[in-house]
Amino acid sequence: MAALASPADVEARLGRPFTPVEEARIDALLEDASAIIRAYTGQSFERVDDDVVVLRAVGGRLTLPQRPVIEVTRVEAVGGGEGLPDFALTDWTFDGIDTIRLGDGAVIINLPEAWWDEDGYPGTYRVTYSHGWEQVPGDVLAVVCAMATRALANPNNLRSETVGSYSVTYAVPTTGDQLGLNLTRYERSTLDRYRNKAATVKVVR
Rank of each mutant, 00 (worst) to 15 (best):
47 R>N: 11
76 E>V: 14
81 G>P: 04
126 R>I: 06
180 G>C: 10
79 G>E: 03
44 S>H: 11
23 E>D: 13
76 E>W: 10
86 D>T: 11
133 W>C: 04
87 F>I: 07
164 G>K: 13
83 G>R: 07
42 G>S: 13
16 R>Q: 09
61 R>M: 11
75 V>P: 03
171 A>V: 12
190 T>W: 01
74 R>C: 07
28 A>C: 06
37 I>H: 00
105 G>M: 09
161 E>G: 07
104 D>C: 11
20 P>S: 08
12 A>T: 09
26 I>K: 01
98 D>P: 02
179 L>G: 11
130 S>H: 02
113 E>D: 08
125 Y>P: 01
148 A>P: 02
167 S>Q: 12
97 I>W: 08
34 S>F: 04
77 A>S: 11
158 L>W: 11
101 R>A: 08
200 T>M: 06
98 D>F: 01
122 P>E: 06
186 Y>Q: 14
72 V>D: 03
87 F>V: 08
6 S>C: 07
93 T>A: 14
25 R>N: 03
164 G>Y: 14
96 G>F: 05
192 D>G: 01
30 L>Y: 01
180 G>S: 15
181 L>D: 04
204 V>I: 10
143 V>T: 00
164 G>E: 15
154 N>H: 12
5 A>D: 00
47 R>G: 03
116 W>K: 11
186 Y>C: 08
23 E>Q: 15
71 E>N: 15
173 P>V: 14
104 D>V: 10
155 P>T: 11
3 A>E: 05
205 R>I: 15
